[in-house]
Nucleic acid binder design. Structure first.
Lengths: 233, 233
DNA sequence: GGAATAGTGTCTGTGAGACAGTATAGG
DNA sequence: CCTATACTGTCTCACAGACACTATTCC
């Protein structure tokens, strides 16, 4: 036998971000049980026996959104283990961050009746809706990670469908950063960045204006040179 | 009572980095008990009841190095919870990353007889010494985090003593990145970066060559503009 | 003086930001 | 024609990299 003393319950929580209607939104569930019954919370759950943390996160993502593993970007964010964060006892939660394209139907395949996309600004802005547990802090950390990742990596495309236009990609950046960007300079930058996006050959049909070229992701994971946020002075 | 099922043992592991003799080194302990008895491992231990993860990491750091909380930079790195990573059972470990200046005496105040600074290159290079558990991977992640943090933050100074010269700061960058840097361009960059370092007014006494100005850290935490690694193409 | 290290100036290419101007669609 | 969106070209300023040069110490 092992002398190992189990001293905690380990869970995963998900910060699932998407851009819908030029807004950065996060997937929340309404809690059906105490504690924080009726309050919005990040989706999550206990890690099963013999299950890796990343596997548990992918399973939760699939249960909540119907998105198969590999269909979205999923990375570990951070771990939260303050003694009082869950009134039921010592719960240590590893948060994962996911980027999803705008889904055709909201939260398809979800088991939770009360799952919903919520605008991030309403949760972190001036008069924020309070979330359960320390989930507001987890969300804040996730959003900051997303903002920073867009600068140095090609992950913005993870918010887009497989084929997208430069303008769609730009609106991802604008929604996540909350800043307008110059469309012309943006176009020049992303098309000249090495292996960031590559043209598909086709164009969109628009209701007005010149049709746009369609692109898919190139092979690059790092963005060189980086695409820095305007302010950060 | 709570229906909470404790399903894991939660621990913290430390990746304590320093620069000694122009080498990036990490603090290791030799394991005195099974599993992996006699193998080098990262220092760490179980999180106590009612103890925060960060507090546990600071406590471990102090036990191993004698460095008081606040005397070093300490940040959360990542959490490792693969089912088989510890043969004794389900152990979830949150790794913390610490940056220390070169200590006058190696590992002062340590309780472990077998604690030692080890060159990182010997652990991650061509024919690496294998560490216990998944500690080689944790170390790899920590070193990569350190390399990237030096680009965008002013944390390189955390490897220096309170007063330091520009050349000492440059040797930190060179040791962590493993690349030589142009001393003149480096000097111009760090002295012109906003609030990165500020002159103390005094100079060093040297055995040969012009005395160097002494600096201390400025208030800035982010480095604007960033100081990018030479290669990363 | 010579050797060693610290620090400055200068040039050149690249890229960011600003923005004029052109291209291609619908009405 | 006008409007809307996509895309290209051009200008200017700032900074990175390369490296000549000056400054201040010990010998």
């Amino acid at each position: 036998m092992s002398g190992l003393r189990l001293n905690a319950a380990i869970t995963v929580d998900l910060v699932v971000l998407t851009v819908r209607g030029d807004q950065l939104q996060v997937l929340l569930v309404r809690r059906g049980a105490a504690p924080f019954k009726g309050r919005w919370a990040l989706p999550g759950g206990f890690v099963e026996e013999r299950e890796d943390l990343a596997t548990a996160a992918a399973r939760e993502l699939r249960e909540e959104t119907g998105v198969a593993p590999g269909g979205a970007h999923l990375e570990q964010l951070a771990t939260y283990g303050a003694p009082g964060r869950d009134p039921r006892g010592r719960v240590v939660s590893t948060a994962y961050l996911a980027f999803l394209p705008d889904m055709p139907q909201p939260v398809a395949g979800s088991d939770a009746a009360a799952a919903s996309w919520v605008e991030v600004e309403a949760l972190l802005g001036a008069s924020p809706t309070r979330l359960a547990f320390d989930h507001t802090q987890i969300l804040r950390d996730g959003v900051e990670r997303a903002r920073s990742k867009l600068e140095y990596t090609s992950l913005a495309a993870a918010f887009c469908r497989p084929e997208f236009t430069v303008a769609e990609l730009r609106r991802i950046y604008e929604a996540v950063w909350g800043t307008p960007l110059d469309p012309r300079n943006f176009h020049r930058k992303v098309t000249s960045a090495e292996r960031f996006i590559e043209p598909v050959g086709a164009t969109t049909r628009r209701v007005g204006g010149r049709p746009a070229q369609l692109f898919r992701v190139g092979g690059a994971t790092l963005l060189t040179p980086p695409l820095l946020r305007p302010d950060r002075g």
